[in-house]
Design a protein around this nucleic acid. Structure first.
Lengths: 215, 215
DNA sequence: GTCTATACAAGGATAGAC
DNA sequence: GTCTATCCTTGTATAGAC
């Protein structure tokens, strides 16, 4: 039936446009902050009339929520498995590497999330209080069990997690500072490897573990 | 003469009001971002009419610059001395402790600076490219000389500095996340000590040095 | 489903009274 | 030196044409 074809086509346009808007919005929200970003600049950047952005996302607040939801989902997909029977060195190393790759590949995701937290997490406080807190508690339990099994130095698991997060995300959030200092325009492929090795060395050594790669 | 007394009094009021406005602005800029902050909310928060804020600082952009200048100055005052004849363990430890204290004491300064960098450093790019880069280069030179003297493990000095910055500033910028995870409303006095000890242990151990305090 | 035109509100800035 | 009243721009949102 004609209606089905029409619906299909429309659905496709809708999806493409929504996607274009989401990507443009992510970039603009990073550069200007939530209030600093106008629906005009988002629609310009997406190559669509302003009214279409309202048509697809109803309001600026809802568009921002959609962007945040997208980011949190992307993060949750890359969470490394940890379990108490695993090897601490291997597990931490692969987690650190994943985080560095993610930070350098999707800096905007990290930046928007960082801005949110800095401003007091007005939109993600509930997520922090429930899902993320549960995730951290679970990982802390596993790290503690490694410590109890004598597999690693007794360090505070929570502070260890925060240290991994801060030192990896730094290369996304403070990209401008890192690159300006090094007098570079963008990261080079080899940088990911160097950063990972350095962070693995520092963090694993601090935990009394042996990193698999030399500095 | 009467004029002198008047001028003196006025000067004092001017300074007090300027200070009130700067403090209010710092808080508002953190919570709402630059564009998100209205001159109205700053003047409300400072307890003055909106026009006075314009009278003292001419424009929103200039007020923001003044806030940034204040922050950079406060930071520069606390920079620990480092020199190649000093002891790496002692020097790094005292630097880390200073940074943790500063982060927990003046989180807003760190937050505003972080937001600036995240957004691409539109207002401090010049500072990063000149003064800060020079500061980093100088410290890297000293760390490298320690390595050459065999005083510590050969790690990349620049990455070491970034690791100290990111892991300490995390407790200011991501305050909300850290506190929410721990189910706390604010940091306790003992937290500064715990965080410092943990970070000193991890970073010094990674550099092949021995921290002065146990975990 | 898409876009033009417009209503309505908020915010930066200033003129001019006090 | 201080504040009230006002101008003008920008931005969100929507009504209604196509």
């Amino acid at each position: 039936m004609t209606t089905d074809i029409k619906k299909y086509k429309s659905g496709k346009i809708r999806e493409q446009n929504s996607q274009k808007i989401l990507e443009a919005a992510e970039i603009e929200f990073v550069k200007q902050g939530y209030k600093g970003t106008s629906m005009q600049s988002i629609s310009d950047s997406a190559g669509l009339p302003k009214a279409n952005v309202h048509y697809y996302f109803k309001s600026k607040a809802k568009l921002y929520s959609a962007v945040l939801k997208d980011i949190v989902q992307r993060w949750n997909e890359v969470l490394t498995d940890m379990n108490e029977d695993g090897d601490p060195a291997e597990t931490l190393e692969s987690y650190i590497k994943n985080k560095v790759e993610l930070a350098i590949r999707y800096p905007n995701a990290s930046k928007i999330f960082a801005t949110e937290i800095i401003q007091g997490a007005p939109n993600v406080k509930e997520y922090l209080r429930t899902e993320q807190r549960a995730w951290i508690r679970e990982k802390c339990r596993i790290i503690q069990s490694w410590i109890d099994q004598g597999k690693m130095t007794p360090v505070d698991p929570e502070k260890l997690i925060f240290m991994i997060w801060s030192s990896t995300q730094h290369y996304a959030d403070f990209e401008t500072q890192v690159l300006t200092t090094a007098n570079k325009l963008e990261y080079e492929p080899a940088d990911v490897e160097h950063i990972s090795r350095f962070l693995c060395h520092m963090i694993l050594t601090g935990c009394g573990l042996t990193p698999s790669n030399p500095l």
